[in-house]
Write a protein that binds this DNA or RNA. Structure first.
Ligand SMILES: [Mn+2]
Ligand SMILES: [Mn+2]
Ligand SMILES: [Mn+2]
Ligand SMILES: [Mn+2]
Lengths: 222, 222
DNA sequence: ATTAATATTTAGGCTATCCTAAATATTTGC
DNA sequence: GCAAATATTTAGGATAGCCTAAATATTAAT
């Protein structure tokens, strides 16, 4: 059984090398300050992690996750984000409160639990902070979802999530014909209040306030 | 922050001294075999627990929980059983599968989480094994709930829980006018299949199969 | 190219938790 | 009441993590 400490190191290495090109090595310095621990501890742990083949480690050059390490990291991220969804959507915690508790819950070991939690939450694809949840096979979209407010005029994107599971926003959206997976394009941005006029799938259009657009997460088509 | 190890020791001492008269000391021997560890480890840990004032410990006589220790134990039992209810009632785990996962979940530290989980589960009073869940103040009924099959003819009792949250049993019961809190009396036990004929609150009577009675938990009136 | 600044590893220690084996204490059986 | 059996503690040692300070390596600046 892996210790909580090892799991937190692996997750941190993943987080710090996310988005960087393949085999990006995380320095002891950066990892130590991320984990608020000493560089000496990181150096020590790097040796242990390399022994267990979770990372490739070259002294003085830092560590990068091995395939085995990446798999572990992604399963931790998956559990973390699923629990965040649970805490937010089912228990009503605010999005700013869920992280610390999920930091503990992510270490619960039970494959079956993760599977059933996922189903119970209806297979969510993003967490309350707008981050993608890796699927059971560990696949995860490269880019972070952006709020609709960041889409410029003419930009085309797909709705991938909503930051507030408050049912009022959801019912507003369904009223306007917008839901998960809806493709839309920003036709114009209205003066004064920055409301968005959107073109939807079948040439319908809809108008949405800035306040609503901030909470809608999109993935831009490229 | 208390370690998982310390919490498991405290919980075990509570479990082993439950039902015994006040200040029942748990021997290192018994605790060691319960926790599947060495007596030497228990002896060592007893000193540490006494230092932290979780137990009263007299060498060669074993340890018993202090008020502070009992409070911690009961909050762990509360969390354990609430999580068991969650796993069973919300995620559909069988009652035989929930223990090991709850053994981990009970160590999550968050007062607010426990409170919200309790509310989410609608303030359950027993877990899927028929054990009482301590309330937020740490109060817990002395006796374990018994199945209705153990109530003898003429015995009067109150329904405190149902072992199967399978909705079929629940709908059968509500159809017969039985729910949580219902007072009933065993009028007779039918021959051959041991079905129970019950007298309910307002002199109504109902018949229930042995199979159903096994899953209904009661607290006998004394 | 040296030197100065910075990053990383090593050395040496500390605590919590475990273990086995040896030393004691307590209890039990005659 | 004493010896044997049993229970408990102590001794001595291991490992995982973490820390500070010292020693090295690497990188940056002149
Ligand atoms: Mn964590
Ligand atoms: Mn998150
Ligand atoms: Mn436990
Ligand atoms: Mn239980």
């Amino acid at each position: 059984m892996l210790s909580q400490s090892i799991e937190d190191y692996i997750k941190a290495i993943w987080t710090l090398s996310e988005g960087k090109e393949d085999k990006y090595a995380v320095s002891t310095n950066v990892l130590a300050s991320h984990l608020m621990t000493s560089q000496a501890s990181v150096s020590e742990m790097y040796k242990r992690l390399a022994d267990k083949e979770f990372i490739d480690y070259i002294p003085y050059q830092g560590g990068s996750l091995s395939p085995k390490g990446r798999q572990l990291a992604v399963s931790l991220i998956r559990k973390h984000r699923l629990w965040e969804v649970f805490l937010h959507a089912k228990l009503g915690f605010g999005w700013e409160e869920v992280h610390d508790i999920a930091e503990q819950l992510e270490h619960i070991h039970s494959h079956e639990l993760t599977k059933r939690l996922d189903a119970f939450l209806d297979y969510p694809s993003i967490d309350p902070h707008g981050d993608y949840i890796p699927d059971a096979e560990g696949n995860i979209p490269k880019q972070r979802a952006k709020p609709l407010t960041e889409l410029t005029i003419g930009g085309v994107a797909k709705v991938v999530g909503v930051l507030d599971s408050n049912s009022k926003l959801l019912s507003l959206l369904s009223q306007k014909g917008i839901g998960l997976g809806t493709s839309l394009c920003v036709q114009s941005i209205l003066p004064f209040d920055d409301s968005r006029v959107l073109t939807l799938n079948e040439k319908q259009s809809a108008e949405l306030s800035y306040k609503a657009c901030e909470l809608i997460l999109i993935q831009e088509n490229r």
